[in-house]
Simulated scan of single mutants.
Amino acid sequence: MIILCFFLLHWYLSVFMQTFFLHRYAAHQMFTMSKGWEKFFYVVTFISQGSSFLSPRAYGIMHRLHHAYADTEKDPHSPDYSDNLFDMMWKTKGFYNDIVHNRDHIDPKFKKGVPNWEFMEWLGDRWMVRIAWGTAYVLFYIYFATAWWMFLLLPFHFLMGPVHGAIINWYAHRYGYTNFKVDDTAKNLLPFDFLMMGESYHNNHHKFGGRANFGGFRWHEFDPTYPFLKFLNGIGVIKLKLNNDLKYM
């Protein structure tokens, strides 16, 4: 029971920070926050993603490119230009690392306003730090696991961030339903998004790239992240932008 609770906690905290901080804030700037709160959420992202920490700066830049060039050769992660899921993930990794290590030649307009706390970006990308997180997961499982099959969950802990990205970038461009006609293959993967905190409403998001609520177009579409945004906006932690129904690019 403890292992399953830990796995679910890691899964949902990680996917929440990915959709809240990396996606809706870093990439789309759907809301603003102070530099103090930005650093706070950098730290929470580091803790929640652990060994699979994704740079908010690199994620933001890469996702903006995805919207601008979806399902073309310039898309950092399109199923249409990959042989399989793992080929897409490997290509995405190379693209991501080029941005992290400043080897890219991306138009500066895609980098405008992206958060960049250099220390946390450096710390989260250190291999020794990633290994330390992975070791902590293994030790936790050794102490609390009550069956051998529980150890099969460990790879998901090691690669939590990329796993979440792969689910949407591959499967939500292959399977699901559409509410809107868009210039790419984005689909709504789940009718009720109990798994990805709203991220699976990918067709809705590609139609309205700056809209903070990814769901709400059909009666069954509920975006679990949006009430958190409303709450944080209400207490002054973030400030939602009023006109957020337009695409970023």
Rank of each mutant, 00 (worst) to 15 (best):
M160C: 11
W170G: 11
H164C: 06
D193G: 02
V182P: 02
T178Y: 08
P191Q: 10
R174F: 09
R174Q: 07
P191L: 12
F158V: 14
P191V: 11
V163N: 14
P162S: 10
M196E: 08
N169I: 04
H164K: 04
R174W: 07
L190C: 03
P162E: 13
H173V: 06
G161A: 08
D184W: 11
L195Q: 00
W170V: 15
D183P: 09
M196N: 05
R174G: 06
N179R: 13
N188Y: 01
Y175D: 13
H164I: 05
T185D: 13
V163Y: 14
L195E: 00
Y175A: 15
R174C: 08
D193C: 01
T178S: 11
P162D: 08
A172I: 00
R174I: 08
N188I: 01
N179Q: 15
P162V: 09
N179H: 12
G161I: 06
V182Q: 06
L190M: 05
P191E: 07
F158D: 10
P191F: 10
V163C: 08
I168C: 02
K187R: 07
L189K: 09
N179V: 15
T178V: 15
L190V: 02
N188K: 05
H173K: 03
D184R: 10
A166C: 12
L190T: 01
D183S: 06
L159V: 14
N179I: 14
N179Y: 14
H164M: 02
Y177W: 11
A166T: 07
Y171S: 14
A166D: 14
K187Y: 03
D183M: 11
Y177K: 09
G165H: 07
Y171Q: 12
L190Y: 03
L190F: 04
D193Q: 02
I167L: 10
A172W: 00
H173L: 05
P191I: 10
M196G: 07
K187D: 01
A172P: 00
Y171K: 15
P162W: 11
Y171H: 12
H173P: 05
D193L: 00
F194H: 00
G176S: 00
I168W: 04
H164N: 06
T178F: 11
D184H: 09
T185K: 13
A166P: 09
N188F: 05
T178E: 10
M160W: 04
P191C: 07
R174D: 07
G176I: 02
